[in-house]
Computed example of a mutant assay.
Amino acid sequence: MSDEHEESPRLDVPVGMFEDIEDLKAQIASLTALVKTRTEREAEEPGKDSTETEATAGGEADDEEGGYPPFILLLDSPEYDDELRALIEWVEGVLVPGYLAEPSADAKWCHLWFEHTVAVARLHAAWLAWQELTDPASCGYTGPSVWHRDHLDPALRELRGSSGPFAGCTKGEHRIEHRLPGLVPSAWTHSED
C-alpha cells in the first residue's frame, strides 16, 4: 500500500471553531441535565401530568415555559421587588467588587443603578446567564468563559459607554431624568384611550 492515498488531517481549522464546539458541548450538557431533571421528576410522581408535577415541585404553577425565571421587566410587584432585591445582592456582592473598577469618564457607573430601567434589564439578563453558565454540571468548564464573552462584556460596554444609561451620572451626582424622553410609545405598557 502506498502512503499517497492516505489523507493527512486538515490543520487549517477556522479560527473560532474550537469555541463553537465548546459552546455546543455546553449546550448539550445543559439540555442533558434538563432532560434528566424532568425525567426524574416525572418518575417520582407517575400519576400526575407534567404541568401538575411542575406546579407542585415549585410550590406554585410557573407561568413561564420550562420553569425558567421571567425577564424582570415583565414582572409586577411583589415579584418584581423580590427579583430586584436578589439582583441587587448579586450586583453589589459579585459584580461590583469583582468586575467594576473605579468609575471614570470612559467607564461610568451609577451607585443608584437600580433606578435606571435599562441597567436593571441588562444586569438582570447577565445575572440569569451567570446562574446558568456557572453551573459546571450543566455547562462544563467553558460556561464561565462563554458568560464573560457573550454576556458580561457586551453588557458592561453598553452600560458604561458614553451613550449608556449612566452617561449623565457623575461621581457623587445621580441623574436619571437625562435618559427619559417625553412621550414615547412603549411596548411594555398599554394605556386605555
Rank of each mutant, 00 (worst) to 15 (best):
D153A: 07
A137D: 15
P136K: 07
D106R: 09
P9G: 03
G161L: 00
T189C: 08
L75F: 04
A125F: 03
V120T: 03
L31Y: 13
E83H: 06
G47V: 10
H148V: 14
A129F: 06
W90R: 03
A29G: 14
G93E: 03
E65C: 07
T134D: 11
L156F: 03
W127F: 13
P185L: 07
W113R: 01
A129I: 02
H148F: 12
E45A: 15
E6K: 10
S104M: 05
I88D: 05
D106A: 15
A61M: 09
G140C: 08
D49C: 13
A57M: 08
C169A: 07
V35A: 13
I88L: 07
S77Q: 11
L159T: 00
L180W: 06
R160L: 03
A107Q: 13
T37N: 09
A55F: 04
E45G: 04
A29S: 13
A137I: 09
P97D: 07
P154I: 01
W109K: 01
A125H: 05
G93A: 05
L84K: 07
C169F: 10
V96F: 02
L11I: 09
K48I: 08
G182I: 06
S30H: 15
I72E: 01
L34R: 15
S50V: 15
I72K: 00
I72L: 02
A126R: 02
D62A: 13
G168I: 04
V13H: 08
L87Y: 04
E79W: 04
P78W: 00
V146K: 10
L183K: 12
Y141C: 09
D150R: 06
L183C: 09
A57C: 06
I72P: 00
P78V: 01
E45S: 15
I176Q: 11
T53R: 15
E7H: 08
T37K: 14
I176C: 09
V96L: 05
A167M: 11
S77I: 01
G182A: 14
H111F: 11
P165F: 03
L87M: 04
G16E: 01
E192A: 14
T53H: 06
V91L: 05
I88T: 10
P181A: 10
V120F: 03
A121E: 12
W90S: 03
S145Y: 08
S145L: 11
W109C: 00
R157K: 14
P69C: 03
L133M: 12
D150G: 02
T117E: 14
R41A: 14
P154S: 03
